[in-house]
Amino acid sequence: MSTERQRVERVPGSRRARLTPAPGTDTTPETTNGPDAGKTPASGPNDDRLRSDVPPHY
């Protein structure tokens, strides 16, 4: 039985607590943020227009 476990940590100035990473997990994100983050190389002809459109309630 493993004694290493996640712990609850208090965050100063916040109402929510935070869990420490689970043992044996990778905490680095799989994707990067940026202008090219969600683009796929095989885009359709309307993809750029759909991404730039703003809903009418804005």
Rank of each mutant, 00 (worst) to 15 (best):
Arg15Gly: 15
Glu9Gly: 03
Ala42Trp: 12
Val11Arg: 12
Asp26Lys: 01
Gln6Phe: 00
His57Phe: 15
Asp53Met: 15
Gly13Pro: 07
Thr25Gln: 01
His57Ser: 13
Thr20Val: 03
Ser43Gln: 14
Tyr58Arg: 08
Pro29Trp: 06
Gly44Trp: 07
Asp26Ala: 04
Tyr58Ser: 03
Val8Met: 11
Ala17Leu: 09
Gln6Thr: 13
Arg18Ser: 03
Ser14Trp: 10
Thr20Gln: 02
Gly24Lys: 02
Thr25Leu: 00
Pro35Asn: 14
Gly34Pro: 01
Tyr58His: 10
Thr3Ile: 15
Ala22Cys: 04
Asp53Thr: 14
Ala22Trp: 10
Ser52Pro: 02
Glu4Ser: 03
Thr20Asp: 01
Met1Ser: 15
His57Asn: 14
Gly13His: 08
Gly44Phe: 09
Arg49Val: 08
Ser52Glu: 15
Asp26Leu: 01
Thr25Trp: 01
Arg16Phe: 12
Arg5Ile: 09
Glu4Tyr: 00
Gly24His: 03
Arg7Asn: 03
Arg15Met: 10
Pro29Val: 08
Ala37Gln: 14
Asp53Arg: 12
Pro56Gly: 04
Glu4Arg: 04
Gly34Ile: 01
Gly34Asn: 00
Thr27Phe: 09
Thr3Trp: 13
Ser2Glu: 06
Thr25Gly: 01
Pro41His: 09
Thr25Cys: 03
Asp53Glu: 15
Thr40Asn: 06
Gly34Tyr: 00
Asp53Trp: 09
Arg16Asn: 10
Ala17Gln: 14
Pro12Arg: 05
Glu9His: 07
Thr31Ile: 04
Gly44Lys: 11
Pro35Tyr: 11
Pro29Cys: 06
Ser2Val: 10
Arg15Phe: 13
Thr3Met: 12
Arg10Ser: 11
Pro56Val: 07
Arg10Met: 06
Gly38His: 11
Thr3Gln: 12
Arg49Cys: 05
Thr28Pro: 00
Arg15His: 11
Asp47Lys: 02
Ser52Val: 08
Arg18Cys: 04
Gly34Trp: 02
Arg7Pro: 00
Arg10Val: 08
Thr20Phe: 04
Gly38Trp: 03
Thr28Tyr: 06
Arg5Lys: 15
Asp48His: 12
Pro41Met: 12
Ala42Leu: 14
Leu50Ala: 11
Pro56Arg: 13
Pro21Phe: 03
Lys39Phe: 11
Pro55Ala: 04
Ser14Cys: 09
Glu9Lys: 05
Pro41Ile: 07
Arg16Leu: 14
Asp26Asn: 11
Asp48Asn: 07
Pro29Tyr: 07
Pro21Gly: 01
Gly34Leu: 01
Tyr58Phe: 11
Thr32Ile: 06
Arg51Val: 08
Ala37Val: 05
Glu9Pro: 00
Thr3Glu: 14
Ser52Ile: 04
Gly44Met: 05
His57Glu: 15
Thr32Tyr: 07
Gly38Thr: 08
Arg18Phe: 00
Gly13Lys: 07
Glu30Ile: 05
Ala22Thr: 08
Thr27Ile: 14
Ser43Glu: 15
Tyr58Met: 05
Pro21Gln: 02
Arg5Asp: 03
Pro12Leu: 03
Leu50Cys: 08
Asn46Glu: 12
Val54Cys: 04
Arg18Asp: 02
Thr28Asp: 13
Gly38Val: 06
Ala42Phe: 14
Leu19Ser: 09
Thr32Gln: 10
Arg15Asn: 10
Asp53Phe: 13
Glu4Asp: 08
Arg10Pro: 00
Ser2Phe: 07
Leu19Trp: 09
Arg49Asp: 12
Arg10Lys: 08
Asp48Tyr: 06
